[in-house]
Design a protein around this nucleic acid. Structure first.
Length: 503
RNA sequence: GUCGGCGUAGCUCAGACGGUUAGAGCACUCGGCUCAUAAUCGAGUGGUCGUCGGUUCGAAUCCGACCGCCGACACCA
């Protein structure tokens, strides 16, 4: 029985347009999913959209449509972007789907039945844009500190989740699971939040109607967060398919941005405990993609959208850049110039050019028929190192290191060609061995880089005469030295990644 | 303010339980090659490892102070 591997992105709020920040998380999740498929794992990769809440309700009113119609439009936009970026999600969940509404009600009912929800009153200054209450201290000149807009006084009967009762259980859980949050700095932040004391939180609203109804109290809907987090349970059959749920839970990998650490690393584990479940096993927290050192935001007008870059770099160039250039964890600064440099260096000069030169020499010295590699080639050891290091890096949520390890093999192959100069040799066994080695490197790289660049790798696979696709290969066996059989037609063709002129 | 983190080559970063001449990629310089997308290969230039002080035979690494940057401390998608 293969290992289950469940990976999620946050579900994206449909009030926003998909930008490269969303794409960064989603591409990382996609690459992880693809890597684990190569390992033969039973992968389930989930993304989706979060569609409830006051912002959506108001936005719909302003546009003269129903909230669901409003959500349909923006949710579709996310789907289209992921489609265009070759995202291989197995499911796309929308919080407005009946399966999710049923799941939220079952999940929250379980918490209620377990005695962790009580009635209370909440009153305060409320910012519609934030969907959040503020204290007087928070306000800036009477306005919302984030949006600078006037707040409204709201007072309502709420149901409260008794988060305060979970301080100790959460600390115990963190103690028992030292590796649950990556990187460790983020784990410490979560611990800090817990140690500072947790107050009960209101989980329902009467002031709005666009949400999941509270099953035990008509007129209340759940606050959008307590609806949203449960999507991770819904998608694997919570309350509907116990066997399937048990297969994928709690061995989940949640990927998330640091802005929502509190919800994922404190509230969500507590909610799981309250509902009688194990908390999620892995939480991967990453930083922001900055632009010119500043956070992307609508108001700064510095948002960058995937389509802006895919035109210049291609889908795989786009995917590669965000996986390779930003270590998973810290903030990363995006710049177009840096993206061009990396594209030209890693993709055009190193990888693409290797295929070009190999195809040409095989055409001239081997009649276009790719020979088999030398079983004793020095590149064999390099390939083994690359596989080992890449595997370790993927396991440690570090795509940039995984790709760096893979590119070391490409560099070794280019150097191997220089050392042997096959273009000076007459056709024969010596040329065959060198070119077979180079083709074998291309074959292995095509497999190892498939999580980052699936379409390009499939194309390389085909250009060197192999049948099937690299995505069908199974590691680690497929990356063992000597897998290229020889005797296959090798095609010359257009450059894999045309250089981008910097002038 | 409280807590935490960071400050290493022009740029992006690795290294740090103390120990030989501090590393990589990019950029730059020189040389080789001409199969290849003016690509590639090799060599080299470049750092008082934020500042000051302490511990030590020995500190980028441990301790303290300071300077600078950042984050968390909000019912923040």
């Amino acid at each position: 029985m293969s290992e289950p591997f469940y990976v999620t992105t946050p579900i994206y709020y449909v009030n926003d347009v998909p930008h490269i920040g969303h794409a960064y998380t989603t591409i990382t999740a996609d690459a992880l999913a693809r890597w684990h498929r190569l390992l033969g794992d039973d992968v389930f990769f989930l993304t989706g959209t979060d569609e409830h809440g006051l912002k959506i309700q108001r936005s719909a009113e302003a546009n003269g449509v129903s909230p669901l119609e409003q959500a349909d439009v923006t949710s579709a936009r996310f789907r289209e972007v992921w489609n265009s970026l070759d995202i291989s999600n197995d499911d796309f969940i929308r919080t407005t789907e009946p399966r999710h509404i049923a799941s939220v009600q079952a999940f929250m009912q379980a918490i209620f039945d377990n005695g962790f929800i009580r009635k209370g009153t909440y009153a305060g200054q409320y910012c519609v844009a934030c969907e959040a209450y503020y204290t007087d201290d928070d306000l800036v000149e009477g306005n919302c500190p984030i949006h600078g807009r006037p707040v409204e006084w709201l007072e309502e009967d709420n149901w409260f989740f008794e988060l305060s009762r979970f301080e100790k259980p959460l600390l115990d859980w963190y103690e028992a699971h030292p590796d649950c949050v990556h990187p460790v700095g983020k784990r410490n932040e979560a611990l800090g939040i817990i140690r500072q004391g947790l107050a009960d939180v209101s989980v329902s609203r009467t002031s709005i109607s666009w949400g999941v109804p509270v099953p035990w109290d008509d007129g209340h809907v759940f606050y959008v967060w307590y609806d949203a987090l449960i999507n991770y349970a819904t998608a694997i059959g919570y309350g509907a398919d116990p066997d399937r749920f048990a297969r994928y839970w709690p061995a989940v990998h949640h990927l998330l941005g640091k802005d929502i650490l509190r919800f994922h690393c404190v509230y969500w584990p507590a909610m799981c405990m309250a509902a009688g479940l194990e908390p999620p096993a892995h939480l991967g927290v990453h930083g922001f993609l900055l632009v010119g050192g500043e956070k992307m935001s609508k108001t700064r007008l510095n948002q960058i959208f995937p389509a802006d870059l895919v035109t210049d770099f291609g889908v795989d160039g786009f995917r590669y850049h965000f996986l390779r250039d930003n270590p998973f964890g810290p903030d990363g600064d995006f710049s177009y110039e840096a993206m061009v440099t990396r594209y030209n260096t890693d993709l055009a000069n190193n990888f693409g050019n290797l295929l070009s030169r190999v195809a040409t020499v095989v055409g001239r010295r081997c009649d276009g028929i790719g020979p088999a590699p030398d079983p004793a080639s020095p590149l064999g050891a390099v390939a083994a190192d690359s596989l080992r290091d890449a595997a370790a890096a993927w396991a440690g949520l570090s795509p940039s290191n995984a790709l760096e390890a893979t590119w070391r093999l490409i560099a070794a192959a280019n150097a191997h060609l220089e050392t042997n100069e096959p273009w000076k040799m007459d056709p024969g066994p010596a040329v065959d061995a060198v070119m077979g080695d180079a083709l074998e490197v291309l074959r292995i790289v095509a497999i190892l880089a498939t999580p980052a660049m699936p379409a390009t790798c499939a194309h390389v696979w085909e250009r060197i005469g192999l049948t099937g696709t690299p995505a069908e290969q199974r590691l680690p066996d497929a990356a063992a030295w000597g897998g290229y059989p020889g005797g296959l037609p090798v095609r010359t063709g257009d450059p894999l990644f045309p250089r981008i002129s910097t002038k």
